[in-house]
Structures are given as structure tokens and as C-alpha cells.
Amino acid sequence: MTLEILGISVLWLFLLGYLIIGSIDFGAGFFNAYGVLTGRQHILTNIIQRYLSPVWEVTNVFLVFFFVGVVGFFPKTAFYYGTTLLVPASIAIILLAIRGSYYAFESYGSRGHKGYSFMYGAAGLLIPASLSVVLTISEGGFVSMVNDNPVLDYHALFTSPLTWSIVVLAIAAVLYISAVFLTWYADKAGDRKATKLLRKYALIWAGPLAISVIGIMFELSKHNVEHFNRMIDIGWMFGLSAIMFVITVWFIWKKQHYSWALGLLIGQFALAFFAYGISHYPYLLYPYLTIYDSFTNPAMATALVVAFVLGLLLLIPSIYLLMKLFLFNKDYIRGKKDHHA
């Protein structure tokens, strides 16, 4: 395995981590807002608060880790993506900042402001939408070189059906992942009402998720044939992912094996996400940037890999402790014990 592939694989893995735990967070915010709107928040608030409170900051770190890592391993991305993403990334930062800090303000400061809940819920959908634009741009066709500087064509971007199908996928995925996870969490907490409601949400959002994936495949076959063909080459990974998706929905439909459903959900997204990444290889930005011509020097690459391994030795036990205390602690999940400062 070359250092280039090792680097991008590690970063991709962390982005997958952000995709999963970020989705849970964003979707939870949306369901909470929806609950407030329909007068059902008492069913959900407890479950959502207990899960989110201790981990919200950790979610953010996954994203930071990804973009710092990308610039570290592939410094040229700073030039291409840094210049073109000014507007979408700034909007995403602002939404993330307001959402993140007001989450803390609300949960530790003062509770129960309705307008805030809506804003929080809406931001949770807008963030994945604005971040997903990066994936669209990476497919090429929206960036051109003017005087040796990359320029983003906003008109082409926002009138492309590919953009919008990826946005729909991002939102549907967020809500689906979140609903499946919270169904499992609520079931573990023994909260029947919440389980019932969240199970319904999971089933509802499975549909749009499947449809948007088919839509993207169709659009991509026209937009970036090279990428599409490579996706067909590793079609078995997508196929396996689809099977996992069907089984997850089946378990949830049957109200059984929620733990398996959660495991399969993660498997489904991991497979699809890596299949997408592998078929994107070697391009970081079609057709300007590949992982090879943007890669950092060997000395830095080695240093980063060593730092990464040492960092993981520190992080893995810490994350294990966090999960043991909050995610797998029955008393905590069920709300029997609250030890907040």
C-alpha cells in the first residue's frame, strides 16, 4: 500500500465517522424540532438530550480532523478547494458554529425556546446540504482555471440536477441514519413510545434514501462517465450495501433485532462510502487533482502517519471509555442517573 492510499484511506475513514455520528446529531435536531411543532417533543427530548449532551463536541472533531488531515497529506487541495469552496464552506462553518454553540447555550444555560429549536433543526439539514456540495464539485465540470486560478461556476453548480440529487441524498441519509440509531437507543432505554415514533421515521426516510441513490447514479452516468464506469466495476460493493439496507429495513419493519439493524446500517454506509471513494480514485478533483500529484513530501507523510498511529493509541481507549460510560451504560441511558456539573 502506498502512503498516498494509506493517507486517503485514513481520512476517508474519519469522514465516514463524521458522516455517521454527524448524521445522528443533525437528524436528532430535526426530529426534536418536528416534535416541538407537532406537540410530541416530550416523547423524544429525553432520549435525544441524553445521547447528544456528552458527545456533541466530539462530533465536531471528526470534521476538523478530516480537513486538517487533507491539507496535511495533500497540501495542493488547499489551493484548489480552498479557493473554490470559500462560499459554501463559509456558510457551513457559520451554520455549524451557530448550531454547536447554541446547543451548548441551550442545554447548559436555559431551556425551552421554541424558535431556537426550529433554527437548530433547520441548521441540521442545511449543514449536510452545504457540505455535500463539496462532493458534487469534486466530480468536476464546475471548476475552471482562469489565469491559473480555480474558479467555481455557481450557475452551473446550482442548476445541475446532480447537485440537487446529492443534496437530497445527504438530507435523506441524515434522517435515516439518525432515525435508525435513535430507534435502537430508545429501545435500549426501554422507552416504548419513543421507539415506536422513531421506528416510523426510519421507515419513512428509507424510501427517499433509495430513490435519491438511484437518481445520483443516473445523473452521474451523464455527468462523469469515467467515474460512473469505475463504480460499475466495483458494483458488488454497492450491491452488498443495498442488501444490507434491505435487511435493516426488514428488521425495523418487523420490530426486531434493532442492534443488528444498527450494525447493518453502519455496514451499508461504510461499504457505499468506500465504494464511492474507491471509484473516485485517483482523483480528488476531476480532472485537475489526483492523490498522487497533490501528495505531500515523503518526510511529512511519514511524520503524519507516525503521529496518527500515536494519536490513535491515545484516542481509542478514550473513545471506548466515553462509549462505556454513556452509550452502553444502562443506568445512564435510562435516565436513572444524572451527574451533570
Binding site: S53, P54, V55, E57, V58, N60, V61, V64, F65, G311, L314, L315, S318, I319, L321, L322, L325, F326, Y332, H339, H340, A341
Partner: peptide
Amino acid sequence: FFFEAIFLGIYLY
């Protein structure tokens, strides 16, 4: 930052 975030979550709760 990661390390700090994890333990701050644990410490607070």
C-alpha cells in the same frame, strides 16, 4: 483537541 473534547464530555457528566 479530540482528547480534550472526549474527557471534557466525561468530566462534565
